[in-house]
Amino acid sequence: MFSNKYIFLYTSGLVVAVAVVLALTAILLQPMQERNREVAKMQEILKAAGQTVSSEEAVEIYNDLITAEWTVDRQGALVSEYRNVKSDWKAVDGNLKAPRAFDCDLKTQLGQAASGSKDVLFPVFVCRDSLYIVPLQGKGLWGPIWGYLALGKDFNTVWGATFGHKGETPGLGAEIAEDAFQQQFIGKQLFDTLGGFTSITVQKGGADKYAGGSEHAVDAISGGTMTSNGVTAMLSDCLEYYRPFFQNMKARMQAEADTAAVAEQQVPVLE
């Protein structure tokens, strides 16, 4: 009834028609989807800073709370600084051609860094000059995991953390996206007392079991060991790239604190 020629033509026609329809919708809806992804990213950054906001108000609160966006290089030097000028982000310092931290995709940057490229930029989000939020990107058991870590002015103590995942096992690995897991990171430290970089370990059996001290570890998820290990690897891998920057900033903050202390000491001498 139907010749082979007909079948071939029929399928070709069908496939072309379907392709046209799908391509058109994808192009038409892309701006809206892009917008949604940006808002979701803002929500995550704000969540690391301790603010849980709805998608409607995310842009406004982001522009209010996040006062600067920095990009840093592998040596820990500041490459560019963007500031919010009337809800519009403009480069104010450093390399004015460098992209905005918000538009830096950490995954691409990590890929380039791994292949030895020197020309990589790591984003830092500054919240009201008191919290410094860095993105994280790694692998879980089934797919990508990511997160944001908010550090205090000492570039050592964690003030907040949030994690997300593409498809970890619900009830096990997926618990990394729950508040109970994320709250544990608050107060943990990235450097030991001698200034050595320790990162934070997600310790199976509980943070107390970690040999390096419980201020550098959090409890792992029962039954979610692979995802927990993924989080540990993600933290140490990503933060390793930020380590020079943290150390620079720590030294700078220390120097500022010292000058302030010296100034204070000098006052009574002068009297």
Partner: peptide, 19 residues
């Protein structure tokens, strides 16, 4: 093919309006 096309359309629309 028809089902898959419709499902992708629905998925794309959801991603755009009900993220």
């Amino acid at each position: 093919t028809v089902i898959a096309t419709l499902v992708i359309l629905v998925d794309q629309v959801l991603k755009a309006v009900a993220y």
